[in-house]
Amino acid sequence: MMFAPAPFLLKDASVSQVMTQVCLALIPGIAAYAWLVGPAILVQLVIASLTAVAAEAAMLKLRGKPLAMFLSDGSAIVTAWLIALTFPPLAPWWLVVTGTLFAIVIAKHLYGGLGQNPFNPAMVAFAACIVSFPALMSQWPSVGLQMPLLDQLNVILGLAPRVDALSGATPLDAMKTALKLGEGQIDIAHLLANQDIYGNFAGRGWEWVATGYLLGGLWLWRRKLVTWHAPVAFLAAMVLVSGALWLYQPASFASPVFHLLSGGTMLGAFFIITDPVSGCTTPRGKLIFGFSAGLLAYIIRVFGGYPDGVAFAVLLMNLSAPLIDQLTQPRIFGMKGRQS
C-alpha cells in the first residue's frame, strides 16, 4: 500500500517557475540596457550565466547533491543576471567571472546552497569586486558610445586596449565628483542642463533602463511573486530623504526623480531587496527592511565613497533580517488585540 500525505491536489508551482518569472521580469530592463550600450550587456549575461551554471554544477557535485534537480531550479541564472546587470557592461570577462564565482561558490554554496544563504549572492559579488577592483568597477561607457559587437567583444576579452571612451563614470558618480570639484560653485540644475551624460530625468538612457526594471517589477507584483511592502518602503525612503534634502538645498542635492531613476534603485527595489532568502519575510519586517535599505542606499551613494549604495545597504540589511523577522511576527488568527 502506497503512502502519500494530503493534500493530494497541488498548485502548479515550482522553484524553477519562480526563477523563470524573475528572469522574464528582467527582460524589459535588459532590452533598454542593450539599446543603450549595445550587445556588450548580452555578452556579459552569457558569460555570467555560463560561469554560474558551471560553478553551480561543480559545487553540487562536491556537495553530493542531485545535479539535474538543482541545476534546473534556475536560481543560479537569476544570480548571474543580477551580477551582469550591476557590473560595468564593458568590464573585462574575468571580472564578471570572478564575481559570479564568488557569488555561487562562497555566498551561496558554502552557506548551504539554495535557500540557505544569509546574504544576497549578487550583492556579495558586487561588494567583493568593488572593494577589490575599484577602478574597473567604476568604468562605465561614455554616453553615445557606439561600438560594433566585435569591438565590444575585444574589449571584454582584453584583446583591445581599454580606451578612454570606456572610462566614464555613472551619472550618479559623475554628479558626486562634479559637486565635489565645484566646491559649491556648481549647481545641479546647471549640471543637468549642460552635461551630455544627463537625460530628461537622470542619466541619459539609464533612466529608461530603470523604467524597464520598474515595469518588470510591477509585473512580478501582479504575478504575486513579490509583495508591495519592501519595494514601496524602499522607494518611499529614497523619495523622502532625497526630497527633504532637495527641498532644503536644491543646488547641491538632486531631486527624488533623479535618485529613483539612477543607479541600482529600481533594480534593487524590485529584484534585490525582494529576495526572500536573504530578506525579511513578515509584512512589517519587509517594510522595515525596505525602508532602512532605501535610507542606507541614499546615504552611501550621496555621502559615501562608492558610486552607488544599494549593494552595501542590502548587505547591511541582510545582516539584520533575522532579528527584524523575529521582532515583527504577525499576530495570528484569533489573537489580534489580545495578549499573546
Partner: peptide, 29 residues
C-alpha cells in the same frame, strides 16, 4: 488524477505558505 509529487526542494522562504495560511501562521518558520 493525482500525479506523484515532484521531489522536495529546499525552502526559499518565498512566503507563499504564509500568504495562504488561514490561521495567519508562518509555515516556513
Amino acid at each position: 488524477l493525482f500525479p506523484p509529487k515532484a521531489p522536495e526542494m529546499p525552502c526559499i522562504r518565498c512566503g507563499a505558505c504564509a500568504r495562504a495560511c488561514p490561521h495567519e501562521l508562518q509555515p516556513f518558520e
